[in-house]
Write a protein that binds this DNA or RNA. Sequence first.
DNA 1: ATTATTGCAAAAAATTTGCAAAAGC
DNA 2: GCTTTTGCAAATTTTTTGCAATAAT
Lengths: 145, 145
Amino acid sequence: MKSAKTVLRQYLKNNGLLASKQREQVLNVFLKTEKHLTVDDLYELVRKKNPRIGLATVYRAMRVICDAGLAREADFGDGSKRFEHKYKHQHHHHLVCLKCGRVIEVMSPEIEKLQQKLTKKHNFTPVRDTMKIFGTCRKCKRKGE
Amino acid sequence: MKSAKTVLRQYLKNNGLLASKQREQVLNVFLKTEKHLTVDDLYELVRKKNPRIGLATVYRAMRVICDAGLAREADFGDGSKRFEHKYKHQHHHHLVCLKCGRVIEVMSPEIEKLQQKLTKKHNFTPVRDTMKIFGTCRKCKRKGE
DNA sequence: ATTATTGCAAAAAATTTGCAAAAGC
DNA sequence: GCTTTTGCAAATTTTTTGCAATAAT
């Protein structure tokens, strides 16, 4: 199976875009963590490798990486958009802890099935979906309040 | 059953806040539409009644109205936050059309049940949740592409 | 009379854009 | 060599905040 890096290169070539050093650097730090990072988080991380990179470049790189099908935007209701992996990652939903901010990824084929039923009933063609449950996670519950 | 206006007044009194003209005006325009409006939408609407109101006042009023349990923030992925009714409205999910922006509200007790099962399994205490399916609505499909 | 709220303008925070210099093909 | 991309700074957009004037109880 193609590596994410190969997928990006192919996408760039197919669309007449250039394979710049910065785009690969941003992809690398993005791939290296499973956390849901903001552009600013990614910017700080890439800067360790390449201190001369600009924040706008990271914004632009992440847009390309999303367009290439490798990342997806996810909004957890704190002011900034975050990104999550899309390549070789199954579709999933999120439990978001309101106390510690932890995000737990969960799958539920049964819910997917009901979603299908729901869209069919409304003659709605689904493209993507998102489900988030906000609350208190196991660990924070143990700590009390 | 208490009217939304009464709920707001009670909330204000209980919390040592004042029942200002502006707060009631914002609540009125919010109640009058079932659409998911942004603060700016609400601002434009209230201005018709009270041209001297400030945008910051609308932001502050909507926060109070949410705190009073009458509204809830909903994010549809366009840059601004939007609000929806919470009082006397059952919990529901959204089908969001990517072509025309229409938002269809749907209910699914079966999905709710599966959500419960999911949170229980992770020992997660749910507080609120949101599910959105993005895609193409019936009408836009008929129009073709 | 006392305290909270308003309107305005300024500040923040997140993201986008214009453009000359640099890099990729 | 031609075109795209970068870095920087300035511009935009959304939301928040400080504060003197005003309104509510």
